[in-house]
Amino acid sequence: MKKSTLVVLVLIVLAGSVFWWMGGLRGERKNGLAPRVQPEVQREIAEPKSSSITRVEEAAPPRIATSVIPGAIVTSEGQAPIAKAEAKGQAAVDGATGAVGATPAPVPAMPPAQMPPSTVPPNELDAARTEAEAVALNIRQYRLRFGGNPVGTNADIVKELDGGNPKTARYLPSELKRLNEQGELIDSWGTPYFFHQLSAEEMETRSAGPDKSMWTSDDVVSK
């Protein structure tokens, strides 16, 4: 056997041994044990208590907090509970039932430059903001499920959100699913939303606002 091969093997065995030992330590700590178990713990090893972890039924579909954000989350199949809300304002999920709780998503304050024209009724703008937030929220849920944002044009993203994903999960509830002839998701003024893809974890949902012109001061933006 070549000397270098021997050295490599020794290194691998050495690393393995160290991690074997570390794995043991970690396992002990994880179980609330001090290294080299105490007598009471020995009993626990022998007669383990029933697990405190509640098993979650995969098939239980999440309930939607429609009273806060209409159409916040809809999936056609059971969705595993999400342990951590990604950001403040995101609908909380009950770990045991998979139900979506009612943590309201605060409507982001608009900077002065984005103040709408006075001719637009405020409730119309509020509804648009809520809707944009709901779309963004559903994209967030998609991202948590699939590890990244949906990709492509508006129509591509709609397809992906509307069951065209590997799990055929639906993230576009009927109350949000307002599409034009091209299959693009449109806002309440009839303009397709723009999905600004910043990264795999960050996507801006932009409505052109009442002037129907994108990238102007009355745009409604949600992340």
Partner: peptide
């Protein structure tokens, strides 16, 4: 415990 340790060892050996 055995499986846990074996997993750690496997990961370490693979990483090495």
């Amino acid at each position: 415990s055995f499986l846990s340790r074996a997993a750690y060892t496997g990961v370490a050996a693979s990483a090495a």
